[in-house]
Write a protein that binds this DNA or RNA. Structure first.
Lengths: 125, 125
DNA sequence: TCCTTTGTTCGATGTTCGTGAAACATCGAA
DNA sequence: TTCGATGTTTCACGAACATCGAACAAAGGA
């Protein structure tokens, strides 16, 4: 997956509001953001969503391009983390408001973690 | 414009986060929201955007369907107002965060008011 | 009654989006 | 080097979207 090397991670000042809003207009992507909202870095592999591998990859790309998440590659695996601080710096209060609304509405509840290592805190030992 | 009679104005609890986010993922619609953010009711006719009449009508419909604005008809004219309280009730803090971000980025600056009665405060006397 | 004003709705068109299957690229292990 | 695991990219497709011009509908005025 050569892509991660090309991974575009916009700086806070390169993020655009409309791109972020568009990224958050899909339930699956909102679900992914909710999943990552605890600040924990998650392995790509533990993410579970009712879509194919390629579609999930697409959604993660949209989130990354918008600046919502950061993807890190380690060996053959990828890890995703929410860019809370950067988002706060650029769009103060937006993420919190979205997360609160998403929780109250339970948006993207179809998205979850693999039952086994559901707590995968990051890179394996 | 018989349409206003069919106008769908969702209750706060009928609004969905993803629909609101989608509505705010277009610069012109964000511009319209910014224009209405002072709480003033504006006449359809004073709204200026670099799109055709039908496209503007479409954008206003998207905003209305998402619950962001309320449209009122008076005689042959229409008036639009931002539903700040309802949005606050349903998505606490979201609108404020979006408006702040939109201002700092100057999203939708192409949207404006007619030069003449730019301050049309509502129904004409 | 006829005409003007004001928006809405109806095609039509080109673009973007969400989706999956399949091919591909990269890394680590055998 | 060969193989398996892990994601990414390409391709294709239907649906949704942004856009416009034209037709339409409702309310007021001449």
């Amino acid at each position: 997956m050569v892509v991660v090397r090309d991974a575009r991670h916009p700086d806070p000042d390169e993020m655009t509001l409309t791109e972020v809003m568009a990224a958050l207009s899909d339930p699956i992507r909102v679900g992914l953001v909710r999943l990552l909202s605890d600040g924990q870095e998650r392995g790509w592999g533990v993410l579970r969503a009712p879509v194919s591998k390629s579609t999930l990859s697409h959604h993660l790309r949209v989130l990354r391009d918008a600046g919502l998440t950061r993807t890190r590659q380690e060996g053959t695996r990828c890890y995703v983390v929410l860019r809370r601080e950067d988002l706060q710096a650029r769009f103060s209060g937006l993420l919190e408001a979205v997360l609160a609304a998403a929780d109250s509405e339970d948006v993207g509840s179809q998205v979850g973690l693999a039952l086994d290592d559901a707590a995968t805190p990051g890179p394996p030992n």
